[in-house]
Amino acid sequence: MNISHHFDDATLMAYASGSLPQGMALLVACHLHWCPHCRQRLAEAEAIGGALLAQIEPMSLKADALKSVMDRLDLEEEIPLPQIRPVQTATDLPAPLHHYLQTNLDHLPWKRLGYGVHHIDLNLKGPGATRLLKIAPGVSVPHHTHAGNELTLILRGSYTDEFGRFSAGDVADLDGEVKHQPIVDTDQDCICLIATDAPLKFTGLMGRLVQPFIGL
Rank of each mutant, 00 (worst) to 15 (best):
T103P: 11
H119N: 08
V171P: 01
D197V: 07
P127W: 01
N149P: 04
L20S: 08
H5W: 07
L53D: 13
L153C: 09
D92A: 11
L53K: 01
L101M: 03
G176W: 00
T130P: 10
K179W: 05
V184C: 15
S68T: 07
T11A: 10
P94T: 05
G18Y: 01
Q22C: 06
Q102Y: 07
G207F: 03
L101K: 06
K62V: 04
T91P: 06
A198C: 07
V171M: 07
F202H: 15
E46L: 11
H146L: 02
P58F: 06
I183R: 15
P36M: 03
V117L: 01
L124V: 03
I56M: 01
R131K: 13
W34A: 14
P82W: 00
L12Y: 01
G215Y: 09
H99R: 06
D71A: 11
H143Q: 13
A136F: 05
D185N: 15
Y115T: 09
D64L: 08
P137V: 03
L32C: 12
D173E: 11
G116P: 11
L209Q: 09
C30W: 09
E78R: 09
L97N: 07
D92S: 12
P36F: 10
Q55M: 08
C35L: 09
Y100L: 15
G176K: 10
L209F: 11
M1N: 13
V87L: 14
G176V: 04
P96Q: 06
D189W: 15
L193N: 01
D9S: 13
D185M: 08
K179V: 09
L101G: 09
F7C: 01
D185S: 15
L32T: 10
E77V: 12
R72K: 13
Q40G: 03
D170N: 15
R208E: 13
S167T: 06
K62F: 04
I84H: 12
H146S: 02
S158N: 03
S68W: 01
A129C: 08
K67H: 11
A168M: 05
D106T: 14
A95N: 12
L73R: 14
S4Q: 15
Q181F: 02
D106L: 12
L81V: 06
H31N: 00
D9H: 07
E78C: 05
A195N: 05
Q188L: 10
S140V: 01
N123G: 11
H146F: 03
Q40T: 00
T91F: 10
S167N: 05
N2C: 07
Q181V: 00
K62N: 09
L205V: 15
E46F: 06
A63N: 10
G215K: 08
S167R: 07
P212W: 02
H6D: 14
G138L: 03
T89F: 09
V28H: 10
S68G: 02
G114Q: 14
Y115F: 11
Q40N: 02
E46Y: 05
F202R: 10
L113A: 09
C38Q: 00
L153P: 07
H33A: 15
L174H: 08
